[in-house]
Design a protein around this nucleic acid. Sequence first.
DNA 1: TTTTTGTGTATTGTATACAAAATTCAAATC
DNA 2: GATTTGAATTTTGTATACAATACACAAAAA
Lengths: 212, 212
Amino acid sequence: MKIVRESLADQVYNSIKNEILNGELKFGEKISEDSLAEQFGVSRTPIREALRRLTEYGLVVLAPRSHASISVISDDDAKDIADLRINLELFALDHIKEMGFSAMLPEISRHAADCQYSSSVGDRAKLFEEDSLFHQAIIKSTRNKALISAYERLDAKIQMLRVEQNESVNALSEYLNQHTMLIELLKNKEYEKAKALTIEHIKHESGRVFQK
Amino acid sequence: MKIVRESLADQVYNSIKNEILNGELKFGEKISEDSLAEQFGVSRTPIREALRRLTEYGLVVLAPRSHASISVISDDDAKDIADLRINLELFALDHIKEMGFSAMLPEISRHAADCQYSSSVGDRAKLFEEDSLFHQAIIKSTRNKALISAYERLDAKIQMLRVEQNESVNALSEYLNQHTMLIELLKNKEYEKAKALTIEHIKHESGRVFQK
DNA sequence: TTTTTGTGTATTGTATACAAAATTCAAATC
DNA sequence: GATTTGAATTTTGTATACAATACACAAAAA
């Protein structure tokens, strides 16, 4: 077996990403390479690589020769993200209709269950993480690599948005029930209902951006 | 007006991208930071940033602590890309159906015309570029930033694929006529026909991956 | 008071130096 | 001959040094 040590750049990337999704780094906050380098005890080189990768995922914005800052996602952007997300998830359902679940059904079910559990013990962070993994698993069942990587990028921003509308996840139990309902519909091959539910589910989560 | 000099990393990024799309750099070819640095007369730092960005766009593959190489796109990957592309372009058409063309129609038409012209003078590179811009313009008319950036990533690989199947763009004039036909259908609000044509158009271009 | 200009400071962009890991290839072993 | 081993070489990963640009704030001008 080949052991590959994670590079400092990768570690820093994950750490900064977590700090953004934890809310430790606020949206719009300026960040300097020097202070991050000092914070993580590394040189600026891996910090720069991490920041540039985060920029590609839309979590960080780079002002050339000036500074980096955490992204701010406007309501319009949030609406765009939700619209595209609906499109991609429906595309995945079409694929499942044609080709079946592949081998992902157990994983999908497990993430739905873990959402329920995390909710019941009040672990919001874990709940959000499992919710992302649930939707990613549906996408992954298509085995379409282009789709999977496009969704991965979108998911980074979806996760940011969840942090932002921190307080506003109303009717959480209904939201979580939709997961199990969706699984049932897919098992029973009721694809049109599954699509309708997916749209409702995403609009439900995206909240206010669909209310106008 | 603020003059911002393009960074060396950006210049190198564009140069390497062009070399890949020109075929100067072959698919699967190993590339070393040192030799690129020497070739461009810069240090490894901007080279590394460029390579990492290219990796995010799927044009380059990084083997950690070992080497970088130009991506190889398999037939399965090409099929995935074409499927997703169809989905995204149909999504854009739905948007145009709801909201109209926005102000992009002149630009769309111009790129279609430039495709025709480039074809007539036998400028393949320019033809491919304008073809990409034509489809990008349709996507841009939705004004959905998430969609636009997702498509931009996909487009990088679409361009690579066009280079690969260099000789096989058969029935080019038919392909180009489809551009003008599509514009006419959209002007006349014949959206279902436009969608059918889009599917045909993309499958036509993607060639062999749809032939099984 | 408001605007402009200039200078010092802080920050990013790039080059270079060094450390660590992977690759190569020849010699040794089976 | 095929495989393994190990040192030499090459290449990447990271730190540091320096250059160039942007920023902040005070002094001067309108």
